[in-house]
């Protein structure tokens, strides 16, 4: 029993960070905007880390899963809004749709692309995002490039006030919950055979295969899990918070890049890393854009390069290495 509890110690610092974020946002006036962005980055990093961090494979098409999740929620709301009996359940159905659609897309992409190794996988996935966007626009699926606007339907389902509270506050709380769930799943994987298999294949795929690990299976598990969380984040941050969706806005590779930076900055494959990465990235981006608007990327790029050179294993990776044997490390993995 004690062992089981100890196993979950590393969640404390993660949840503590989330709790502090929440308190600051709630109590310091004018901070919720920043906190909302940070929570989004935390959830995004934590979700992406399950794949990028644990397998070492870089998916440049990751944002497609968020985009599809956004559409899942949008479709549920627009198609079901007239069924009054469902009420708030429609949002729940939307989450289910987002989850299923993102998972299905990841199975389709994974079945093909995960047969490729390393850089070849990365190159193959670049096409997924753009391809999916052009498919929607070109084949006029889900209204094509006209997108979907469902502010009215959301107001109708939830009532104007609740819908507005959802977009300014509750959507962010849901994002926080998704981040918490993703942290849980990450730790659960780390402590189970899945985590050991993923570590082995990340370090040496050929040796892992000879040792009896079905690497394709474990890569797909990580891929689907990671994609499903991305779908949920999209459904919340991009559909519930702002009730419209346009293909160029959600299938935007910029978000994939941000997710990669967050995971690498904090420490790929660590539990606390994505949180640290999200905070460093989110806070510096926010203040740079206030104090030096227009120059933030110019300043940001070298900072990221320096951090990556100084701490190739990320901030948390470096901490782990330097304080290996201290008791504190029981809480940081």
């Amino acid at each position: 029993m004690r062992k089981t509890v100890q196993r979950y110690y590393p969640l404390f610092p993660v949840f503590a960070a989330y709790f502090i974020l929440f308190l600051v946002g709630k109590n310091v006036s004018g901070m919720w905007q920043l906190v909302s962005t940070l929570l989004f980055y935390c959830a995004l990093g934590q979700a992406f880390n399950i794949f990028l961090g644990m397998t070492g494979y870089v998916d440049f098409g990751y944002v497609a899963f968020m985009g599809v999740g956004t559409y899942g929620m949008a479709i549920a709301i627009t198609r079901l809004a007239h069924v009054e009996a469902l009420g708030v359940l429609i949002v729940a159905i939307g989450f289910a749709m987002a989850l299923v659609m993102a998972a299905l897309l990841s199975v389709a992409v994974g079945a093909v692309a995960l047969r490729l190794r390393g850089a070849y996988f990365a190159i193959a996935t670049i096409g997924v995002n753009e391809g999916f966007r052009f498919l929607i626009e070109g084949a006029k699926i889900w209204n094509g490039s006209d997108g979907m606007i469902f502010t009215a339907q959301l107001n109708q389902i939830l009532g104007r006030e609740t819908a507005s509270a959802l977009s300014t506050f509750w959507a962010d709380v849901i994002v926080l919950i998704i981040a918490v769930l993703a942290a849980f799943v990450t730790l659960f994987y780390m402590k189970s055979k899945i985590g050991y298999a993923l570590t082995a294949l990340r370090e040496d795929e050929d040796a892992a295969v000879v040792m009896g690990i079905n690497v394709t299976k474990y890569k797909i598990i990580a891929f689907i899990t990671s994609a499903s969380f991305a779908g949920l984040v999209g459904a919340t941050s991009w559909a519930l918070k702002t009730p419209y969706v346009f293909p160029p806005e959600v299938f935007e590779i910029h978000y994939t890049i941000e997710a990669i930076i967050i995971v690498l900055l904090g420490g790929a494959g660590t539990l606390l890393g994505p949180v640290a990465g999200a905070l460093i990235y989110g806070i510096s981006k926010y203040y740079l854009s206030i104090f030096l608007p227009g120059f933030q990327l110019l300043i940001f790029a070298p900072i990221i390069i320096i951090i990556i050179i100084l701490f190739p294993e990320g901030v948390i990776g470096m901490l782990k290495k330097s304080f290996r044997d201290s008791t504190l490390m029981r809480f940081i993995i």
Binding site: K193, Y196, A197, T199, A200, R202, E203, D204, A207, A208, M211, G212, I213, G269
Partner: peptide, 16 residues
């Protein structure tokens, strides 16, 4: 498996 400990490396053998 370089980033894993000796113990974890050997445990992978047992697990799979």
């Amino acid at each position: 498996f370089g980033s894993a400990t000796v113990r974890e490396n050997v445990a992978v053998g047992a697990m799979f």
